[in-house]
Structures are given as structure tokens and as C-alpha cells.
Amino acid sequence: MADNTKSRHLPGDPKEHHIVPYKFHIGIWVGLIILTIMTVLVSVMGISLVAFSVITAMIIASTKAVVVANYFMHLKYENKLITWLMGVTIFLFIVFIAFTAFDYLTR
């Protein structure tokens, strides 16, 4: 008989659901807003830390994405497998861009 009262448990699964406190989430949100303000200021006022503003913008955006994934999406509290596979996905995405860009850069 299908057992639908309790969820199946396998080795590697997180032991129990991690409850993230309200305050922690709000703290994360404040951090994200600060990063947003930073990226706008860097762009509008032209005060990039690195030579290219696009690199600064991408560093900030990536930081924000990692924060959202780790804390809002609870990646930090999930099975490590998902983090690894996420890494593979991002790696492939970078390969797609890098190989294609290489063609254009060397033409």
C-alpha cells in the first residue's frame, strides 16, 4: 500500500527540516538590498572598483544569487548533492559562453 503519511528517508538526506528564524531571513534581505543599492551606485556614479563596470556588476549579481540560493532557497541545509549538481550546471553554462566567446575573440 502506498504510504503517504511520512516521507521516505535515505542516507544523505538532511536529518530533519531546518527551521530558519524570521530574523535571519530579514537580515539576509537587508544584505540583498544593500548590494542592490551598491550595484546601482557603482553604475550611475561610475565608481567601479575594477576597471570594467560590467565585471563589478556581475560580481555583485553573482553574490546576490548565491545568497538567495543558499539562504532563501535553503541550499545550505539540503543534501550536498544538489549543491554539487548546481555546480555542474553552472560549469556547463560557463563552458557554453566561454567556448562561443573564444570563437568570436579569435576571429
Binding site: 567556448f99 573564444f102 570563437d103 568570436y104 579569435t106
Partner: peptide, 10 residues
């Protein structure tokens, strides 16, 4: 018409 170096690598 892809670049030469890209062709070699692929």
C-alpha cells in the same frame, strides 16, 4: 566561418 583556433580546439 568559425575562427581558426576555435576549430583546432574543437
Amino acid at each position: 566561418g568559425m575562427s581558426g583556433p576555435a576549430r583546432v580546439i574543437f
